[in-house]
Design a protein around this nucleic acid. Structure first.
Lengths: 343, 343
DNA sequence: ATGAAAGCGCTAACAG
DNA sequence: CTGTTAGCGCTTTCAT
């Protein structure tokens, strides 16, 4: 069933049918209803490709996932973000087009995306401290929104981000208030912008109390269980071991927990852990015997929604003035086991 | 830059240029080279929408992600699977179109996909024991491939799956060989087909040794840390507690581990854990003091590749005869801490 | 080996 | 308010 035959059946011109279906005002309500009903009955849906060609709009948003080794897509955050964005796309009639590209041909991927014209804009994941994608997209003139920020860029772009710095500053202060003086930071990969900001938060809290920053207490790398384990194992052998671990991921925290046990120490008596949790889980804060979450999966999903909404607005309005949304991480203390608190 | 202007620049007709670029045999090699070079120089890429409209092929594969509550997309497996499939799509020139739909309007989503014609086929994730999507797709006549199987369907479809039954049978036998007689199974959601098969494997191993199956030792639900914890906590209070836990996910295993410790028991002395690990991590098998993995992320990615390849072949050849690929899970014993063994 | 012309299904000026 | 006429950029008969 296509426009032409539907129009024929109705004894109308394709134009009128198109106008009726697309809500143009110059169609009589009677006709519109008649057309709508016929379309419904015939289960008519306009052919996407034809529509796209005619309007010049792809009605699709691109997500380019560089797949160098394995990080990024691995991230549980990714799935939730996608879910949030996808919700918005579906409502607005956009397709979500995901492209997996080997790290090194990323530039080509973006260029092709534009010249092949199959997306109207792109959403950028996991920006680095210095991120060349920004310059590329500026050159291509393609609308984009970042999930996260780029510290090292002065390009004016739109972004949605969690206040990572503040979250880690608060978590660090929490531990300092409990009396901890040697606090280890088990962080994500250093060149990732979010990791940089988290570190800045940790450092800011220490500086505010005139405490020295010991680089040895800071570990940066992929946030795996093994990372947390190895770091804890190692540090707890030192003559002046940390009394607390602040970790950037639940997996790392679980690893640290294992490392602590292997060292024959007791969580909550000898050592504490506080974690930033993007995942679903539970971890005891050794001091309070209660879990702490600093961000939840539901807020990541919300970030996805906001990014998508921002991008769509930018595309549809043509207004490219940069807009920002900074979300505060939720800091929860005193939840007992159970589902993650939703905000 | 489009076909017309490129042709004009070359002093050729659009037809010839199109033929040259698309590898039609009736073009002289000299012309073809000239055209190729000009296209390269001009950074010409045919407009996707136009091509699609003209050929009637969307050059896109759909992935529909139902987002009822939260499971499925949560799954770390999902990301790796997508990565694998995406690789293949990219090479074959297909787009990956992901649609997030609320659980209840899934049927409509599929129907629209077809009538809007923006995908040539779909890939089905996380099938249930009885899955109505199969019937829907058969009705629509759209090519599809399943990642997983559907026990309750006699529809003849193509699938790629891991041998979940065998994996769990082997893991159970491993524990039985170590002398365990009360083995708890912490499984995924019962209506998921993969969970059903895992359970069957566990049961088969017990039956083969004429052992009774105690339903109380089987827990099915979302594979979270809390699930493992709560199950272990509960069971270890019984007069005849399990001496081993077989879990379907690393998170559940970590939870069980916590439950064991809270009960004042010692991993590897009092209780053992073996886990099926789709994720990245490390877990001690309490008996051997070594980790065990029954599947790895790299094999999930491989499954993604195979699914995609199968679907593309089906689409391009028009041959819809069902094809199957059953992958054996890797069972690894004796790895020390470190990266996940890749196959 | 190359080109002219028609058409994929839709939208959008431009009439009336 | 409705219809006619051109395209959107490409592929694909059908000629030559």
């Amino acid at each position: 069933m296509n426009l032409k035959t539907l129009a024929l059946e109705l004894g109308l011109s394709p134009t009128t049918v198109s106008r009726a279906l697309n809500g143009y005002p110059e169609v009589s309500e009677a006709t519109r209803r008649r057309v709508r009903e016929a379309a419904e009955a015939a289960n008519y849906h306009p052919n996407t490709q034809a529509k796209r060609l005619a309007t010049g709009r792809a009605m699709a948003i691109g997500h380019i996932i560089p797949i160098s080794d394995r990080h990024e897509i691995v991230n549980p955050v990714f799935a939730d973000f996608i879910a949030g964005a996808g919700e918005v796309y579906a409502r607005a009639g956009y397709d979500m087009v995901m492209t997996i590209v080997p790290d090194d041909s990323e530039a080509r991927a973006y260029a092709e995306l534009r010249s092949k014209g199959n997306v109207d804009g792109v959403l950028i994941h996991a920006p680095k401290v210095e991120d060349h994608r920004i310059a590329m997209l500026d050159t291509l003139g393609m609308p984009y929104v970042l999930h996260g920020r780029v510290s090292g860029s002065d390009s004016a772009f739109s972004w949605v981000d969690v206040n990572n710095k503040r979250a880690f500053e608060r978590a660090t202060n929490f531990l300092l208030d409990l009396g901890h003086r040697r606090i280890a930071l088990i962080n994500g990969i250093g060149e990732m912008d979010f990791a940089r900001r988290r570190r800045r938060g940790y450092e800011a809290a220490l500086k505010a109390r005139d405490m020295a920053i010991d680089p040895a207490l800071i570990v940066e790398g992929e946030m795996t269980e093994a990372q947390g384990h190895d770091a804890a194992r190692e540090m707890l052998r030192w003559p002046d071991p940390p009394t607390a671990f602040l970790t950037a991921s639940l997996l790392s925290a679980m690893g640290a927990r294992r490392g602590i046990e292997e060292a024959g120490l007791v969580m909550g008596r000898d050592v504490s852990i506080v974690t930033h949790d993007d995942e679903l889980g539970y971890l005891k804060n050794g001091t309070a015997e209660e879990p702490i979450f600093t961000a939840t999966r539901s807020s990541v999903r919300e970030a996805g929604r906001r990014c998508a909404a921002l991008l769509i607005e930018q595309i549809e309005s043509g207004d490219r003035s940069p807009r920002h949304e900074l979300m505060e991480a939720v800091l929860v203390v005193g939840q007992s086991t159970g589902p993650v608190p939703t905000q």
